[in-house]
């Protein structure tokens, strides 16, 4: 999945990323880049309580809210 913030400054991608647990199941992995330079701005991972298969389905960026 990929989206760009309304101000065009940030590109955000998200998908499945294997976790560090021994089972190697997946987490949600969401990564933001500076749209101009490509510099990685941040990463956020979601690993469910069972550390099993965590799979993101969809994402959305609010149009008016910038935090």
């Amino acid at each position: 999945m990929i989206a760009v913030t309304p101000d065009g400054a940030t590109v955000i991608v998200s998908g499945q990323s294997p976790g560090t647990a021994e089972n190697g199941y997946s987490d949600w992995g969401t990564v933001a880049y500076d749209a101009k330079t490509g510099e990685q701005k941040w990463v956020n991972r979601h690993d469910g309580p069972a550390h099993g298969f965590d799979i993101p389905s969809a994402m959305a960026i609010p149009v008016t809210v910038s935090r």
């Binding site: 979601h46 469910g48 309580p49 099993g52 965590d54 799979i55 389905s57 969809a58 959305a60």
Partner: peptide, 22 residues
Amino acid sequence: MIVTGASSSATTSVDLATEAYS
């Protein structure tokens, strides 16, 4: 921004999770 997806649970199989990130 919002991400929604399937998240494994220790007690209730797989739950529907929705998260907001700055």
